[in-house]
């Protein structure tokens, strides 16, 4: 197998929002630790799902990796180039290769611009002259995402939520980027429309080989679309694994609880399964608990968890977990067949 290098490599990324007080002489009195040291890699053409509950920092992480928000510290390498070091001008040029799709198709489209203007904006901003002219390129894009090219001169308010999300997707793929960060792209849509958009995103990925960072709170949607999944909690990555493995053999108690909290649309299955119900709420990200950030809600927490922050370590091939006491029974089943080593009797 040839070694493929990641298109995006994020190391120890930190994004803190300062909390200030005072009127004229503002003092920084604390920080909301939205993203607190995350590392991840995204390979060409794959989808990395970033899941977690509200306030876990997944959206901030998504925006910071594109430098839409300036990171506090850490490094972001895009195709080997450190994004943090490049100048604003170079960054604009690099944005050709990386795009974003937003959650709210109502506020992310300029209501006073026509659909044609919105989709041709990337060409104009980047000074790209498509072969065959702008009008026909935009028409092709509209057709590709399932919009009628005759609606070129219509305004966003004439479209439904699902169609608006299609406009946002057309704009994002206009310059054939290598990476798209999708921030909750389907959570504002009804289920029947949600499925249409998920299928469209999957087809586009297949056609153009785009890598996605898919930020979402809905674990079923993430499983459906992702190759690998990283679970975030209070600004940190708790567990990361190939998606099948994460859903069938979760190692972190938080992942386990999260999966068991999702109601399954099957009455017999749903009513006869054991469910872990976490007590309490998410702690404040401005004052995260010492040690493991999950210890206040974890049923397995011991003294060590309250004092020492666990590092994200690899347990098996591609399966990383940040926990002192990962789910034991599952570890045993994995350790029976160690990957990459011959079993010596």
């Amino acid at each position: 197998m040839t070694q493929v290098s990641p298109i995006l490599k994020v190391s120890n990324l930190v994004k803190h929002f300062p909390i200030t007080s005072g009127g004229i002489f503002q003092r920084t009195t604390g920080a909301v630790k939205a993203v607190d040291g995350i590392s991840l890699e995204v390979f060409p053409g794959e989808t990395l799902g970033l899941v977690g509950e509200s306030g876990c920092g997944k959206s901030t992480a998504g925006r910071t990796v594109l430098r839409l928000l300036e990171p506090t510290s850490g490094s972001i390498e895009f195709e080997g180039q450190n994004l943090i070091k490049v100048s604003k001008r170079e960054l604009v040029f690099m944005r050709r290769e990386m795009q974003m799709i937003f959650q709210d198709p109502y506020s992310s489209l300029n209501p006073r611009a026509t659909v044609g203007d919105i989709i041709s904006a990337p060409f104009q901003v980047q000074g790209v002259k498509p072969v065959g002219g702008l009008r026909s390129a935009v028409g092709d894009l509209m057709e590709r995402v399932g919009l009628n090219p005759e609606h070129f001169n219509r305004y966003p308010n004439e479209f439904s939520g699902g169609q608006r999300q299609r406009i946002g997707i057309a704009r994002a793929i206009a310059l054939q980027p290598k990476l798209i960060v999708c921030d909750e792209p389907v959570s504002a849509l009804d289920v029947s429309i949600q499925a249409q958009i998920l299928n469209l995103l999957a087809e586009i990925q297949k056609d153009f080989g785009i890598a996605y960072v898919f930020v979402a709170h809905d674990l079923s949607v993430v499983r459906h679309i992702s190759d690998r999944v990283a679970v975030m909690y209070l600004g940190q990555i708790m567990e990361s694994a190939p998606s099948e493995l994460l859903y069938t053999e979760p190692l972190h108690p938080y992942t386990h609880a999260l999966l068991s909290a999702i109601p399954i649309p099957d009455p017999d299955l749903e009513r006869n399964r054991e469910r872990i119900i976490l007590s309490g709420d998410l702690p404040s990200p401005s004052n995260p608990p010492a040690g493991c950030v999950f210890n206040t809600r974890c049923w397995k927490a011991e003294d060590k968890c309250r004092s020492e922050r666990p590092v994200l370590r690899e347990i098996s091939m591609g399966h990383q977990v940040a926990c002192h006491f990962p789910e034991q029974n599952l570890i045993e089943t994995i350790s029976v067949a160690p990957t990459g080593t011959d079993f010596i009797a």
Partner: peptide, 18 residues
């Protein structure tokens, strides 16, 4: 239309239209 958490369904079968 709903992606299932308990199994990976390859392709969703959405309802066309609005």
């Amino acid at each position: 239309s709903i992606p299932q958490i308990s199994a990976k369904n390859a392709h969703l079968d959405p309802i066309p239209g609005n």
